[in-house]
Computed example of a mutant assay.
Amino acid sequence: MSTFSLKMEIADNRHYNGQQSPLFTIDEAEKARAFHQKVEGYQPTPLHSLDCLAKEIGVGKILIKDEAHRFDLCAFKMLGGAYAIARLLCDEFKLDVKDFDFEKLKNDIPEKMTFATATDGNHGRGVAWAANKLGQNAVVYMPKGAADERVNNIRALGAECIVTDMNYDDTVRLAIKTAEENNWKVVQDTAWEGYTEIPTWIMQGYTTMAAEAVDQMKDQQIERPTHVFLQAGVGAMAGGVLGYLCDQYGADKLHSVIVEPDLADCIYRSGISEQGEMVNVEGDLATIMVGLACGEPNPIGWPVLRDCSTQFVSCQDSVAALGMRVLGNPLGDDPRVVSGESGAVGAGMLAAVYYHPEREKLMEKLGLNQDSVVLLVNTEGDTDPVHYREVVWQGKHPTL
């Protein structure tokens, strides 16, 4: 077997205390899931069991929640954007979210509203999708270097899409400023002073996929995962999902690993900070994991990750590329999983550990053994098909 060493900085969380967030509970997740179940075309996304890969790597089970099948959007993000817009409109029109009806509300809104957001691609597509369903307007800002496919997917939903010459975090600031000037509603998946309610709803929307996974594990006669690997950009998805899983199982029963690209590792740097304070990363954030190319932690998600995560990881782009190839070319009877750059990094890390010359040492550090049940989340499919083929077919970002 070939061995190779990819950069993976693994840091134990010195700030862990296991304190559960009251925002991401089983009850809040069920509210969000009840909303999503009423959306036309709703189906739980698959939870695949990669038994051959698990045997090869030396763990008991590898499970992957495959969000490439979420509606026709190829990513999980609409779960947050749509739920937040629904909650926002319920507040605006004095409705209970339990009674939310897309068609009825579409006809009842007297004047078109405009929802604005900044995105690396998938969140903006989710916001544009929800606005389109409600017959409203959406304006989506994207950072420089945005792939044409991601831009076109947003515009195909009737939204205005503006690509800036800035990085993600500066693009967020531009979207906020422009929205304030035009009296638009901001639907952003990070928070700042005075803006916490909508990003909380977005994170609660993400818990639907975790609640589905818990039910699917029960159906597969799996009591619980021992490990969960969650990728982080601002930490909204990771914080919401980890918060829910800790309420479900207990933080002390879950070895949780938060994985980021080394070019945008604000959560990792926050995790190794002296007092557990949030640390920002500046610059172009030019990682292939564009959905994770965020330099400023979400202040709602960070306390969950600080209090409940077991470890933080900063890794090079080749780890994600390896994951894309491993998932797309399965062993034995394992199902094929088409995973984009941000979706594949958890699987890529498992594979990178397997091929590492210090494999046994890394397995021990991560607490992995033949009894481990590892839960991964494929947050996106090939949302940039050109780059997907460059990586999987042409070997871009090689491992050897």
Rank of each mutant, 00 (worst) to 15 (best):
L157C: 06
M113V: 08
E358T: 10
G346K: 01
A286T: 12
G291W: 05
M78T: 15
V259K: 00
A86T: 04
V140K: 06
T178A: 11
K361S: 14
N17W: 02
A210D: 02
P330V: 09
M203I: 05
E274H: 12
D66N: 11
P22N: 10
G81D: 08
D66I: 05
V386S: 04
P330R: 10
M166V: 01
Y249I: 07
Q370I: 09
A210E: 10
A146L: 09
F102P: 05
V97G: 05
C74K: 14
S21H: 01
L366F: 06
G348M: 08
D219W: 03
M363F: 11
F71V: 11
G323E: 12
R150C: 04
F102R: 04
S21T: 12
L23G: 01
T190S: 15
A86S: 11
Q248R: 14
E180Q: 13
T399N: 09
Y354G: 00
V139D: 05
Y355C: 04
W201N: 00
Q204V: 12
F312V: 00
A34G: 10
I162V: 15
L327T: 09
K7N: 15
Y195P: 00
R33C: 11
P330E: 05
P303T: 05
R224I: 00
T3L: 12
S21M: 05
L242C: 08
L95Y: 02
K177P: 02
T196A: 14
T45M: 06
L322E: 00
M363E: 08
L6P: 06
S372I: 02
G239I: 02
G240L: 09
Y168P: 01
I57V: 15
I272E: 02
V345Y: 06
H15F: 14
L230G: 03
D265W: 04
G295K: 03
T190N: 12
G283I: 11
A82Q: 13
T200H: 03
T207L: 04
R155F: 11
G381V: 12
V172R: 00
N280F: 07
D262N: 15
G145Q: 03
A82V: 08
P143W: 03
S256Y: 06
